[in-house]
């Protein structure tokens, strides 16, 4: 029974959260209030964990909440519940798209959608850079301008940029190297 409840709750979350992982947060807080399956501080912990593991936060949160509520099967059921609505909707859209692919209006819509898509990707990059390459808090605390830049991180970014261009290795290799450098040089400041 608990599995069915978990499935339905996360199905609802998956159905109504539009626009990526963080859009699931309001639903998770509401679920916490209504069911008591997990606390608000569990959600906060999970944001931190999600940022340090692969996968999207919505998925991670479903696994975590399901596990807390009903063990390993709970974790799996909740995650599938979250994924199900988007899978169904995307399959329907795919079907329509293959039908109307050469339609003039669909093509024109994509003329507008592509710059929008790349604008959002650029903005996501800027958001990561804001955390990774500079110290935003220095500005509000009135520190010196030089401290604003996280110089070791910027140096790593430049090296990675050039290396990636020259070497053409798989991105995963660069991710692993960056993790190692982060550990060796204490990039997290701890």
């Amino acid at each position: 029974m608990i599995y069915l409840l978990l499935f339905l709750q996360f199905f609802k979350t998956g159905l109504f959260s539009v626009g990526g992982g963080l859009a699931t947060l309001p639903f998770l807080y509401e679920m916490s209030n209504n069911t008591g399956w997990f606390t608000h501080s569990d959600v906060a912990d999970m944001i931190a964990v999600s940022e340090s593991t692969p996968g999207a936060i919505g998925i991670n949160m479903a696994t975590f909440a399901g596990f807390l509520t009903a063990g390993v099967p709970g974790g799996i059921v909740a995650t599938i519940g979250l994924a199900m609505p988007s899978v169904i909707i995307i399959i329907i859209i795919s079907k329509l798209l293959s039908k109307f692919k050469d339609n003039k209006y669909v093509e024109s819509a994509f003329y507008g959608l592509r710059p929008a898509s790349i604008a959002m990707i650029s903005a996501a990059g800027i958001n990561v850079a804001r955390i990774a390459l500079v110290h935003m808090n220095v500005l509000s605390e009135g520190g010196s301008f030089l401290n604003f830049f996280n110089l070791p991180a910027i140096a790593l970014a430049v090296v990675l940029f050039i290396a990636q261009k020259k070497l053409k290795w798989h991105p995963v290799i660069f991710i692993a190297i960056s993790a190692l450098i982060g550990i060796i040089f204490h990039f997290g400041g701890v």
Binding site: D45, A48, I118, I121, S122, G125, L156, I175, I183, V190
Partner: peptide
């Protein structure tokens, strides 16, 4: 997990890489 120093440091490094990868993808798709 998220409070372990090794995790914090590793992820601070990974974030730098993620920025670079996204930036390069934008350049390629431009």
């Amino acid at each position: 997990f998220a409070d372990l120093p090794v995790v914090k440091n590793a992820f601070a490094g990974i974030r730098v890489c993620v920025c670079v990868l996204i930036f390069q993808a934008v350049l390629r798709l431009w």
